[in-house]
Design a binder for these strands. Sequence first.
DNA 1: CTTGACATTATGTCCGGACATAAAATACAA
DNA 2: TTGTATTTTATGTCCGGACATAATGTCAAG
Lengths: 244, 244
Amino acid sequence: MGETRYAQVARDLAEGIGNGRFPVGSMLPKELELCEQYGASRHTVRAAIRELQDLGLVSRKKKAGTRVEAASPSRGYHQSLASVEDLVQFGIEHTRVVQEIRDIVADKELARELGCAAGSKWLRISSLRMSASSGSTPIGWTDVYVDPAYAELRDIVRDNPRALISDLIEQRYGRRIAEIRQDVQAVPLTPAMAKALGETSGAAALRIVRRYLDQAGDTVEISATVHPADRFTFSMRLRRDRSA
Amino acid sequence: MGETRYAQVARDLAEGIGNGRFPVGSMLPKELELCEQYGASRHTVRAAIRELQDLGLVSRKKKAGTRVEAASPSRGYHQSLASVEDLVQFGIEHTRVVQEIRDIVADKELARELGCAAGSKWLRISSLRMSASSGSTPIGWTDVYVDPAYAELRDIVRDNPRALISDLIEQRYGRRIAEIRQDVQAVPLTPAMAKALGETSGAAALRIVRRYLDQAGDTVEISATVHPADRFTFSMRLRRDRSA
DNA sequence: CTTGACATTATGTCCGGACATAAAATACAA
DNA sequence: TTGTATTTTATGTCCGGACATAATGTCAAG
């Protein structure tokens, strides 16, 4: 019940791509074969394959067939936010080391930086970002701003150093993220940041401000991350639509 | 013929959204009404509406209906590259002032920066980026690298200061862009760059390297743009999938 | 006035079939 | 061998119908 037929087919194929049953570069079985294998109509199989296309896992050409383009992503944001690879990296490859959690009131400057109202209250969670794989050098500093009502997060974030905070909010409070707006700019490091990150003050850094919105368009979370130059590259891939 | 039925329907609806026939916030006619109006099957109408969804023009909810979310984008990349607003801005709001065009050979460092082979030959088009609306301060510097065979571009780019170079290549040489890979990082300004942009050497800047690929996955164009901090913000919007 | 049960209804999913189209593969001609 | 038709075939588009599902609005009971 929980899962629709075409979603089942899509997931099964995606797993096949992930575990090597369909290696990158190989061709997927043709539609009619898949119909037979899964006992589904061609319409359903096509819906499933379209999912894989949206995820960038396969590409299609008339007559040529359906080609496996990439290994399977490990579910989560990559599957729900189309075409953007960076967020996966964030969740999977980075770890959070919480430095400070406190209630704050937005002054005029912070309000401008975050795009919120001056005087509004927030719970701010500040943490260092570490690469999950190697080394003890932080790759960035993150300030996450959430509604002070989400007080439980104070404990939860420490216990889940790799989870996206928006996921924790969704699990705990049921507020589902429908959209993310993101601004990226270059900034010079402030003295305080520079010290925390072991850099010199004024050095070039990448600043990413994300505003997480729910379906109604209300802000659930704002995060501001600063990465010293050369410790972080923000990569993404844009594809032309199927239709084009 | 030239245009499929569902593409016609999608275009007509998109135009209606653009010209106010379907104002932002209003509800689109329900599927069965559209079927009648266009004399198309429900399947076709749904394919059209899905296009509009992919473009972010409408959102749907069961029973509630289809709601107009945004005014029509102004054709071009926004329609063909899903969910990324920045590229539109680039084409529409920026002007190019060509500074130098010359043939170069990639040395080891450039090869690393661009992700190409050392020793490969390129035609490099260097230009200042000006805001189309206001002022004479450049907002960035761009180096575009293309195949030296595209020599005609030497003249064409000067005559089309607002067109995307990849569009010019498509028009002239028929190489269609299917995918763009993009890396964003913070860098300190080199002395030469700083001088051209009226900044101090070592100041923070945003560097965007784009690799334009055709359907076969071959590189058509590489562009590297540097924006001084505070003169440029890179904005984007990510939406959750239909399916989620 | 509030609560809960229920009918309504627009979108979501799925089936089966048909023809169009483009590109690969093959056969054929030069 | 090379270039050009022709055939083949897998995907693309489109039709009509059916039932599922969830959100909305209605209405009666409390």
